[in-house]
Design a protein around this nucleic acid. Sequence first.
DNA 1: CCATAATGAGACATATATGTCTCATTTGAG
DNA 2: CTCAAATGAGACATATATGTCTCATTATGG
Lengths: 189, 189
Amino acid sequence: MRHICLIMDTKRPTAREAIIAAAFEVLSRNPGAKLSDIAERAGVGRATLHRYFASRDDLIQALAMTAVEEMDEAAEVAMKDARSYSEALKAIVSAFIPLGDRYSFLMREPLEESTALAEEFERQAEETRQLIEKTKKEGLFDPAVPTDWLVQAFDHLLYAGWESVRTGQTTPRQAADLAWRTLTHGLKA
Amino acid sequence: MRHICLIMDTKRPTAREAIIAAAFEVLSRNPGAKLSDIAERAGVGRATLHRYFASRDDLIQALAMTAVEEMDEAAEVAMKDARSYSEALKAIVSAFIPLGDRYSFLMREPLEESTALAEEFERQAEETRQLIEKTKKEGLFDPAVPTDWLVQAFDHLLYAGWESVRTGQTTPRQAADLAWRTLTHGLKA
DNA sequence: CCATAATGAGACATATATGTCTCATTTGAG
DNA sequence: CTCAAATGAGACATATATGTCTCATTATGG
């Protein structure tokens, strides 16, 4: 019996996954959307949503966790065939830009406090930090520039890319190039 | 009689102004704070707050309008003795960085729709755009870089500076320098 | 000192999302 | 087919900020 349950846990195309997917869709368009909107979009009853996610915060937290996992995965794939840390960082920019329209609403949520999620955030931030440190040693960035600022600039230029794509000003590819150029060489003539 | 009223409108050290000041203080620490918290901080009753601002949205809108005005003023002062548009833009970065801790919560508010405020936003964005266009003609930026991206990068590096100051990573002066450097020359070695 | 306006305190009504619970129905495994 | 688990629909209770209103008190201008 148990092994069957385990299989079902792994391959469950509906319910929980459908709700998470619907939540991303709905909340990215309207961050204040009601749970009933999300349930409807997911094609499930509101009660079922509550069976999987006890509260709104629970759901938001699950979304954030999903985002972290997907970004981890995207980063890993992007770094796979990079020949240097600098190439890897650049590849990550390109890989993250298309994720913006799904995740950007999370920035407006008052997350925090949850230990499990906070740890993941911290870990991911630390990984970014260390990758940037390594690119510094490769000579990509001026060692005199604080790594903290590099992280801030990296993050916010990513957001700028998201916004740029969202408003139709650029394609994801263009946004990635512009963000990378800004970070490394700036925009001077 | 009327002239007296006019004078009172101009010099009113209490009530409305106190509420706005308190709202900035309270909301920048806790964006979801209750109106009663704001009223208390302002030293007025909740009813009085409602006499000046019919609804929460009204208050938020007034805060946004205040922010726009203060940024206009800060920009004007900063540009006063600039000898070029490029210098002016740089001065604006320095002038805006210290404003972050008061205004950043406004980014999380679902503003929009209000005609008067939306117009101000649009005007200010357009002014930034045109200033950047002029710095382009002075040779500060690569003409091949879309002005839209320059505006995005400008805004988001400003936010990066705000965050950097807020978390104590840098002083406002350092943040301004780093943001400017990133925008113009990037962070390469 | 007077009269008007502004204020504070608090009761009151409202709205609305949220979370809980029940029960009939459906689904899926054996 | 049978039964247990999952689900949907919807009633129900709850919580809480919000906005309104009243009235006694205070402040202020004349």
